[in-house]
Nucleic acid binder design. Structure first.
Lengths: 231, 231
DNA sequence: TCACAGAAAGTTGTATGCAACCCATTGACG
DNA sequence: CGTCAATGGGTTGCATACAACTTTCTGTGA
């Protein structure tokens, strides 16, 4: 990818950041229900049922479903309804393959653009994630922090459309699911990658950060049970 | 990017293909109105107004707008409405940069997977595009054919999420706008690229195709008035 | 027993009405 | 004259009602 000398855009917040912790909208509620597995993959989503569970009418449910469909989290069948997309191991592998091919380069571009405040925030997010892991749980919260961490690099790469493209393959549901499948060791290693990314960012060493990010994503692909040898 | 050995998925048709020529739904109508410039970039979209122009009630309009917002074609402001996103030259450059970094690799992966029928279809699409250019016009139709042409490569690359990610940066409105800005010479050169891609596909030479595609996209970036020297 | 037609139930797609909210104008007051 | 509050028009957000479609069940006939 050629470096686009786009002057830092007006901070297009990612979905994961904008409505990460508590989004009371029907869209946010549904998304978190999918991410948590409360709505199982492959299951049919009945609008009336969801409306009652969330406590709104069908109208906002329908808008949320169409938005989720555009993001690829659910699949709509005309006059038949929506179902949560079921990610096969091959699908998950494909998602991480795209990220592995894309995100490290975005990191390479972004490191020179990072402000001191960015680095401080990266360090803080890394520390918070380690704390969550130490307290042993809340994989959904961890997933949100992780999205914010990665989002900083992506937003600073100088091309806001990189975020657009990557968002399509950073499905919260899949990431949360991956975290849940992590072994204790894999989880600790993942946190170490974050710490090393912070170190590379502090050193403003883009190539180092690029390499760490590639490692990080390929390790995640493996932890998701989708390493090349098994498929 | 590592090649994902995903066994050709059940043909997830792209939006551009599924509803390219005539989509009578409110979503399709709105999308084509934006692509054609009938709804100017930056202008506010009033739901009641659109509903009347298209001849439906506000409900399907609202769903279409939220879907278009998820795709990044319009921007929603809560309680204020939607406006067509305005792509600055830097934005357009960023879009083509992402494509330049991504799509050639997808082509490299896809060429070995192309069936004879795929190659025939590619040749047919290329011929149809040349015919449209020879008849001198219908940039919207050309844009649809172009999307189908590129879509074949993307769908055959063995990773359906590549399509998901690329779709986010292949905005029909931008592509159509780029075509409109093409000079006659740039347009003919673009068609030549297509023909050369067909030749590379017939020869099953992935690296050749990859190189042509990279050329093709960078030429498009330049034609869009966004070559690096000018920004 | 099986196949098929018909009806009935359930679900989605659309239209409409009303409340909440934003914005601009206007008027009064300092 | 400038500032600020009230008010009105206009738009969006949500709830509800109804129409259209899909699926399933049931009953009849071979």
């Amino acid at each position: 990818m050629t470096a686009a000398a786009v002057p830092a855009p007006p901070a297009p917040l990612t979905h994961a950041q904008r409505d990460a912790p508590r989004d009371e909208s029907a869209y946010g509620r549904l998304r978190s229900m999918i991410a948590s597995g409360e709505l199982a993959a492959g299951s049919w989503l009945r609008e009336a049922n969801l409306a009652e569970r969330i406590g709104v009418s069908r109208t906002p449910i329908r808008e949320a479903l169409s938005r989720l469909a555009a993001e690829g989290l659910v699949e709509l069948s005309r006059n038949k309804g929506a179902q949560v997309v079921d990610f096969s191991p091959e699908d998950v592998a494909g998602l991480y393959d795209v990220r592995a091919g894309f995100e490290p380069h975005a990191v390479l571009l972004s490191v020179p653009n990072l402000t001191d405040e960015d680095v401080v925030e990266l360090a803080a997010l890394s520390a918070r994630m380690e704390a969550v892991v130490a307290n042993g749980g809340d994989m959904e919260g961890l997933s949100a922090l992780n999205a914010a961490f990665h989002g900083i690099f992506i937003e600073r790469c100088g091309n806001r459309h990189v975020a657009t493209a990557l968002q399509a393959v950073m499905r919260p549901a899949v990431v949360a699911h991956t975290f849940r499948k992590y072994s204790g060791e894999a989880l600790r290693r993942s946190m170490q990658h974050h710490a090393e990314l912070v170190a590379a960012a502090e050193a403003r060493d883009g190539e180092w950060a690029e390499a760490v990010m590639r490692t990080h994503i390929l390790a995640a692909r493996n932890a998701a049970g989708a390493n090349p040898s098994t498929r």
